[in-house]
Design a protein around this nucleic acid. Structure first.
Lengths: 116, 116
DNA sequence: TAAATTTGTAACCGATCGGTTAAATAATTA
DNA sequence: TAATTATTTAACCGATCGGTTACAAATTTA
């Protein structure tokens, strides 16, 4: 079953799972708590997300921790980037974001960050 | 029928239609020439694209000219932009693109462009 | 070992998807 | 007016989607 990142992000539940696991690993139950649907339904969504590389699962005992692999979104970026100029206001805000981000990057370059 | 831009771009044919009509208006036949499928199939895709605002149709006699409204993609941009830093190489190339685009914009600011 | 916890799998359901062919509609051309 | 052209609509099709419930499997805890 060929999975595609565009198809994966077409579903709002899956987009929310990506947001939830973007900055921390959550097991399936923790993900499911955020939705009004059964655990098997969430399990299926996570399977689709892993099949296209948008989420990575790490097994730990009987639990499975999910974490978004956001670099996979670059395929979407490649599609929309050539058209950025068509929403220039957003473009400006992105430029501002990039500038801020570059600044932050320089600031942190000496300190070492600890992430689990 | 609630149409959503994420669902609209999930299909590769529709993404191609967006690319084709990004910089020129094409009537349905001209769009269909690019695909190995029937005109009614293309007509349905265009309908989905127009329903979520990704394509605008201008009737001219018996022909209908399609043109992408790329600003609608900002919704997708809002979803992925917070994660840009996770594919930094691409981020760098975007920065380069933005710089080049800004330069080009300045260059053209005096000449007037004619577009139909 | 027995019970509880976490998760996946199987079978099912109705709705939607992406395509088809055939026919209808509307505008243009001969 | 008749024929041609551009397109949409209708009806249909099999496949996939997004959910459910029931059950199985594996790990941890009592």
């Amino acid at each position: 079953m060929r999975r595609d990142v565009f198809q994966a992000i077409a579903d709002p539940t899956r987009r929310q799972i990506i947001r939830l696991t973007a900055h921390e690993s959550l097991n399936l139950n923790a993900v499911a708590e955020n939705f009004d649907m059964s655990r098997p339904a969430i399990s299926k969504h996570i399977r689709i997300l892993t099949e296209c590389g948008l989420v990575i699962v790490r097994q730990e005992g009987r639990e499975r921790f999910c974490r978004a692999d956001l670099s996979t979104l670059h395929a979407v970026s490649e599609f929309i980037d050539p058209y950025r100029k068509f929403w220039s206001q957003k473009l400006d805000s992105l430029e501002a974001y990039l500038a801020k981000d570059a600044k932050r990057k320089r600031k942190r370059s000496s300190k070492k960050t600890n992430r689990k």
